[in-house]
Structure formats: structure tokens, C-alpha cells
Design a binder for these strands. Structure first.
Lengths: 236, 236
DNA sequence: CGTTAATTTGAAAATTTTCAACGTGCGTGG
DNA sequence: CCACGCACGTTGAAAATTTTCAAATTAACG
């Protein structure tokens, strides 16, 4: 029997379709897309699964493949010069990882699954590295890179309540934007990981989540978060 | 008499030469470089001066020109959805601004001089927008964009002392990297701007700078900062 | 010079961290 | 099956840091 796209049991987010993927245009131009029976686009590229806690790639690895998250959640981790590791960002389905591959060289940080992940692999050679900077493919690539240079929202600023709410709201809206359920999702992150991301302590995260829950703004149950009536902030 | 590159009186940083500029490769490939009498490369592009406090460009402006900072200091400012404005990054000589131009569309944030600035203008049409994604120019462009997607250091994390020291150290090393004096420079930023960047209050910035000065780690005099024996952090 | 803006300083209030204890879930091994 | 150990999360209370508010200084500018 055919099992075209491996799905995962306790998946928090996904899977998504090619249409809502940031790599879609590249795949289309590079000709690695086909049509399935339903006439919806379907990647013919290789899929890769990453179990929670395992790395998609690590800093220093040669960057030769671009990845698109199809399902699950990952984190980018960098260890600072002082030796402490810092979570720089999370990656939800539809996002592209490993853009360093286009530039050459190696990956600059670890990317690790915080939930079971399925992603598409697009090896550079599969799209003809020679013709990479030419024509339609070149401009699609520049657009993709251009989107990536936009500054990412920073959740380690402002009062703690705002950090937690804007973090949750951002995650939710990113899922919603890809057609997934952003009002209720598996978080996957531990308190320790959330604290790292928000630049605070696990106790503070715990207290803030409890407080939001008391206020009926959110509901946390067994790793699943529901955003009930979460307001962006109290500010100005 | 010829005055090939306008200099600025109270300039904090710069001017730098084309060789230490991130746009150098693009300029070379695009053929906008010439050689001056000393056989050192010299841009033939237009120069633009921006007085302190004035904008190089603003969010929403059509992005049609790429800029390279030659002298001075700028800040990228974005107003959040809640209406408060946030300084996202500083820009020292040698850095490139306005990469959105390559992608098309408009600028995403205000870029404002915090010190008198001189920068090179490279209008897209000057480098033949048609052939932008082809050959050597295309790969130079991808390299430039690729460098820009590397995550910027975040100074709004950790204890306040570390934020201030790593901020100063970063600024200093960026100047040093371009062949400028990174151990002693005009800051140009007000306390209010530093506080914004570090996500704290002006009083806290003031106290921390005073404390570092008492410890002989730095010296602040009339807007000029000297890094005497500033250690990265006390950490691990 | 006089006036205004920016910075510094002090002291109380608020937030966050630290340290310690407690609870829960879960897998292991008796 | 249950006791145990262990990782993870929650909770409490004191300590530390940071913010707030107010006032005093200093710098900037016409």
C-alpha cells in the first residue's frame, strides 16, 4: 500500500500542504512538484522525520540541503561565546530551514525538533546548483531570502506578562496563517525552553501561565494550550 | 580643489574605504567602481549625507536603492502594533541598508541617522535590474542576502550589566572590524535610545554606565566612550 | 545669561529571581 | 502491583534587581 506522506501520532501542528509552504515557489520553479489524483500539488522530494529532541542539523554541519517544515515544531539553538545556550526562534509548518545552503558553507546553529517533525528535503543538487542564480529560479530565491531578512519578533522584551502573551499569540497566529488550528495546539516546549526563549526563569513562566489560566485567558492541559481570550497587551 | 568624499566634522565613525564595505563585491561586479590616483578602489556612485536625526528612508517608502554606510551611525526603528517604537539595530560604516530593494516592494522600518551620516547610494537601475539574478551579480547578491539572514545579536537579554557591556563591546568590535577605532568612539545615542535598545529605563542605563566608569572599565566624556578594560561578562 | 532638555542621583515600590519545599507522573525493579 | 527514583512543574517567601517617582545637576542653545 502507498503511504505518500508519513504522519505522526501526537502531532501538534500539521501536516500542511505545499500551497501554504514558503518553499512552494522554489519547488514549483525547480520542477520538483507533481500533481496527485486530487489535482493538488504534491512534492516529489524526499521526506525526513525527526523525533522530538533530535537534531535536523547542527552548527558546523555542511549546508547542502534546504528543508521545509511540514509537520511539528523545531527550535533554533545557539550556544553563546559564554557557553550558555539560547533558543533563538521556533519553526512552525510551512517555514523553510537551512537557507545557508544557498549561500554555501555550513549551518550556523543547531535546529532541533521539540515535537515530532516531518519535513521536506530539497538537496541543492536536486535543483541544479549551476543554474541557481538564473531566471525564474534566481528571482524566487532572492524573494525567499528577502523574506528571511525581515526582523523576527523578539519575545524577550517588556514585562513578563506581555512576553508570555505575545509569545503564545505569535505561535497561534503562525499556525493560523498556515491553515492550522492556532487557537488550540500542543506546545511541546518545556517550561525550561519557554523560559529560555523569553529570557526568564521557569518559575516565572509557571506563575505567569497559572495566572493567565486563573483569568480564563488561556487553558493549559497536558501540554496542550488553548487561547481563550488572550489580549495582546495592556499597553498604551 | 577636489573634495572626492565629503567628510563630517564631529564624525564618530568613518569614513571607511570601499574595500571594507559589504557592498564592495556588488559594486565591483556591477562596474560602479573606478580606481583613484592611489590605485585604491573608489566608488563612482552618488553619495548622500544625512544629518543626525534625519531619516535615510522610512517604513512604507518604495525600496529602489541600496545604501552602504560610509561614515556615521544609524538606527533601524520599528513601531510595534501597540504603537511604541523600538530600536531594532544600529548600523555602522561598511554595512548595507535597504536590501528590500532587491526583493521589491517597500521598506519595512525607519532608518534614521543618530550621527551625521554619509552613505553610498546604489540605485537598482544603476546595476541593471534586468540582469540582477544572472551570473556573477546574482551570486554576489545571494551571498549578500545570505549574510543578512544571520541572526543579529540581541542586547535585550540577561542582567542589565551584561546588556550594557555586550552592547558596547559589540559596537566597538564592529568598528574595529572595519578598520576604525573601536576602543574609543562617539556614541551618538542618547540614554533614551540606549535604554530602548537594551529594553530598560534611562535611569538604569545611566547608573550602569556610572558604575562601569567607577570600576574603570569604561570612560564616558561628552558623548565619547572609551573601553578601557571591559570584560564580556562575569558568566560561567 | 536664561531657559529648556538631558542626565544623574536618591529612595520607595514593583517585579523578578533565588532558594527551598512540595506534588505529580512515569518508568524501573523488586 | 507497589515502592522508589527521577524529571518536571508548581508554590511560597526572602533576596536581589529593576522600575518608578521626584529632585538635583549638568549640558545645550538661543
Amino acid at each position: 500500500m502507498t503511504n505518500p506522506q508519513p504522519s505522526i501520532a501526537c502531532a501538534a501542528a500539521g501536516p500542511i500542504g505545499c500551497r501554504s509552504c514558503d518553499l512552494h515557489e522554489i519547488c514549483r520553479v525547480a520542477g520538483v512538484l507533481a500533481f496527485d489524483a486530487n489535482r493538488s500539488r504534491q512534492s516529489t522530494g524526499a521526506l525526513r522525520t525527526v523525533q522530538a529532541g533530535a537534531a535536523l542539523f547542527r552548527a558546523g554541519d555542511p549546508a547542502q540541503t534546504v528543508f521545509a517544515v511540514r509537520q511539528g515544531l523545531l527550535k533554533t539553538v545557539r550556544v553563546s561565546a559564554e557557553g550558555d545556550e539560547q533558543i533563538l526562534s521556533l519553526h512552525t509548518p510551512g517555514e523553510v530551514l537551512g537557507l545557508e545552503a544557498f549561500v554555501g558553507g555550513t549551518h550556523g546553529s543547531d535546529v532541533i525538533a521539540v515535537q515530532p517533525v516531518v519535513c521536506c528535503e530539497l538537496p541543492l543538487r536536486a535543483i541544479g546548483a549551476q543554474r541557481l542564480h538564473e531566471g525564474e529560479l534566481g528571482s524566487a530565491l532572492v524573494r525567499l531570502l528577502g523574506r528571511a531578512i525581515a526582523p523576527r519578533p523578539n519575545f524577550s522584551r517588556g514585562p513578563m506578562r506581555q512576553r508570555v502573551t505575545s509569545f503564545l499569540l505569535d505561535l497561534g497566529s503562525r499556525l493560523t496563517d498556515r491553515g492550522l488550528d492556532g487557537r488550540q495546539f500542543m506546545l511541546g516546549l518545556s517550561r525550561s525552553e519557554i523560559a529560555n526563549l523569553l529570557d526568564t526563569r521557569i518559575e516565572t513562566v509557571s506563575r505567569m501561565l497559572q495566572q493567565l489560566q486563573r483569568e480564563q485567558a488561556i487553558r493549559v492541559r497536558g501540554g496542550k494550550v488553548s487561547l481563550l481570550s488572550l489580549a495582546p497587551a495592556i499597553g498604551a
